[in-house]
Amino acid sequence: METIRHFLSFLSPQLVDELLSKSTVKDIPKGTQIIREEQYIKVIPIIISGLVKVFSKFDEKELLLYYIQPQQSCIMSFSASLKNTPSKIFAITEEDSKILLIPVESLPKWLKEYTELNDLFYNQYDLRYTDLLDTIQHVLVDKMDKRLYEHLIRKAKLKHNSVIKITHGQIANELGTAREVISRVIKKLENEGKISQNTDGIKIL
């Protein structure tokens, strides 16, 4: 518990006490869906350790919107909870993660009493707005080889590992395209000497 208190030291001690008294801390395995599309949000996640990816679905195609890193939260679920509307996104743990789950019913009171909690979520709005603009630019402007290469580089940085254990199908889901397209582009990037792949995964060169 002291480790979590230290992690939340950017918040006031009084707010941390309230968060820990009413929230739940869970260890969630990699590949677990923590937010479902169309569900009503009951808890808001703050990532303590690990990594979570947030998707939206368009005409049965999935598209990765952004990652949630430690000391960050999911602004889309925050917005849905305040409006009491179904979630428009779904979120999956990219790695084994420890997550603080804040009960939605306590949020209005805490937002009124603690300005730093407002600051946290306003900062998340700004961060996600930038992320979404970047995603839109990549989809509308960039060719798939550039999109894929930059996606792999970003994923490697987030995981702190130049080797990424991922299938072509998983990449296709994240980029909202077909697995055959990803396989073709990965081969192109290999031929250009930008990446290599073997049984361990895809390595950024």
Rank of each mutant, 00 (worst) to 15 (best):
T85R: 13
S73V: 06
V104A: 06
P103T: 11
K88N: 09
F90Q: 04
S81N: 11
S87E: 01
K98D: 11
S106C: 06
E95R: 15
A80F: 00
P103I: 13
L100M: 14
D96N: 15
S106G: 02
S106K: 15
S87R: 02
L100F: 04
S87A: 07
T93K: 05
C74W: 02
I75M: 09
I75V: 14
S77I: 01
S81K: 05
S73M: 08
F78N: 12
L101Y: 11
K83N: 04
S97E: 12
D96G: 03
A91F: 01
S106R: 15
I89D: 06
P70N: 07
E105Y: 13
D96I: 05
S97W: 13
A91D: 07
L107Q: 11
A80S: 09
I92R: 09
S77E: 03
I89H: 13
Q71K: 14
K88G: 02
F90Y: 15
L107S: 08
S97C: 10
E95M: 14
S77C: 06
E105F: 13
K98T: 15
S77T: 10
Q72Y: 10
L101A: 12
V104K: 15
Q72V: 03
T93D: 10
S73T: 15
L101T: 14
K98G: 01
I92P: 03
Q71F: 05
K88M: 00
Q71P: 00
L101V: 07
V104P: 06
P108Y: 10
P108Q: 04
I75K: 05
P103C: 08
P108D: 13
I92K: 07
I89C: 04
I89P: 02
K83H: 00
V104H: 02
F90A: 07
C74R: 05
I102E: 10
P108K: 07
A80H: 06
F90V: 02
E95V: 05
Q72R: 13
F90G: 01
M76R: 14
D96E: 15
N84L: 00
K88E: 08
I92Y: 09
S106P: 00
P108E: 08
S87Q: 05
S97A: 12
I92C: 08
P70V: 05
L100Q: 10
D96S: 10
V104D: 05
S77P: 01
L82T: 09
L82G: 05
P108S: 07
P103Q: 11
E94D: 12
L101W: 13
P86E: 01
E95I: 03
A91K: 07
S77G: 02
I92M: 11
S87I: 01
P86S: 02
P70Q: 10
F78D: 11
I75T: 14
I102T: 14
F90N: 10
S97H: 09
E94V: 06
E105A: 09
I75W: 11
C74F: 00
K98Y: 04
E105N: 14
L107F: 07
I102Y: 03
P86C: 01
S81W: 04
I99E: 08
C74K: 05
D96Y: 07
I99H: 12
P86F: 02
C74N: 15
T93H: 08
D96A: 12
I89L: 07
M76Q: 15
L82V: 06
K83L: 04
Q71G: 03
T93Q: 10
E94T: 12
P86Q: 02
K88F: 00
I92H: 05
D96Q: 09
P103A: 13
E105G: 00
P108T: 06
K83T: 00
